[in-house]
């Protein structure tokens, strides 16, 4: 496990400036996450889950300490290098799906591949593969507005998976979904995790999500309170 560590966090702190000084959202996190993990960061609202995920995803940077992701130190990346990391090796899934409304399902999933400058036939094959994993082949030409919430989130997962990233970061992916859809999506992600050895990291306080996790990292007030391997 040690030699397949993808994420290594040491003494990580994150402060946000506030009107009365600063607010410490992450207060000394030490963490290692390996390949093919299916891990969740859980904890009450305001505990720092999103902040931690944003730093791992190079959308934000540490105030103190170190965050190594796929061999790169997040604090040392400039905006272009961070964009390159996200473009090539990370996938994101959001609570509100964030599908672009003017584009079809196919085009939404194709966007990450356009940024990678792949040619049309490569793109076509990869998009169709990804839509097949998610059972969306009959929705290729639909627009997001014509889809249900569950379908939208599946499109978002297809978009995150299409370039076969090493790590997928999912912040409250089920918050807008009903129970049936939540379970459906989680099962799909479990399957993708085992099939492609993709590392999944969730930020959640949803028990349905937690029930699927293989490892549960509990945050309280910006600190890791518990880090446990669960029975799954």
């Amino acid at each position: 496990m040690e030699n397949s560590t993808l994420i290594s966090i040491e003494a990580l702190k994150k402060h946000f400036p506030t009107s009365g000084g600063r607010f410490t959202a992450l207060n000394g996190i030490d963490l290692k996450i390996g390949k093919a993990e299916f891990t969740g960061v859980v904890g009450p609202s305001g505990s720092g889950k999103t902040t931690l995920l944003n730093i791992i995803g190079s959308l934000d940077s540490p105030s103190e300490g170190r965050a190594m992701v796929l061999g790169l130190s997040i604090s040392d990346l400039n905006v272009k290098q961070a964009a390159l990391l996200r473009r090539t090796r990370l996938g994101f899934i959001f609570q509100s799906y964030n599908l672009l409304p003017v584009y079809t399902v196919f085009e939404n999933v194709e966007l990450p591949l356009l940024l990678l400058k792949l040619n049309e036939s490569q793109r076509r094959k990869m998009v169709m593969d990804s839509l097949e994993w998610l059972g969306l082949t009959d929705k290729v030409k639909s627009k997001p507005a014509q889809l249900s919430g569950g379908e939208c989130q599946r499109v978002a997962i297809a978009r995150a998976m299409v370039k076969r990233p090493e790590i997928v970061l999912a912040d409250e992916p089920t918050a807008n979904l009903d129970a049936a859809n939540s379970h459906n999506i989680l099962k799909t992600m479990v399957r993708l995790n085992s099939e492609f050895q993709t590392t999944f990291i969730f930020a959640t306080h949803d028990d349905k999500v937690i029930s699927y996790l293989k490892r549960k990292i509990s945050l309280v007030d910006g600190k890791v309170e518990k880090d446990e391997i669960t029975g799954n």
Partner: peptide
């Protein structure tokens, strides 16, 4: 979203 997907500013 485009930023998250890896397009730069």
């Amino acid at each position: 979203t485009r930023l998250a997907i890896g397009e730069d500013y």
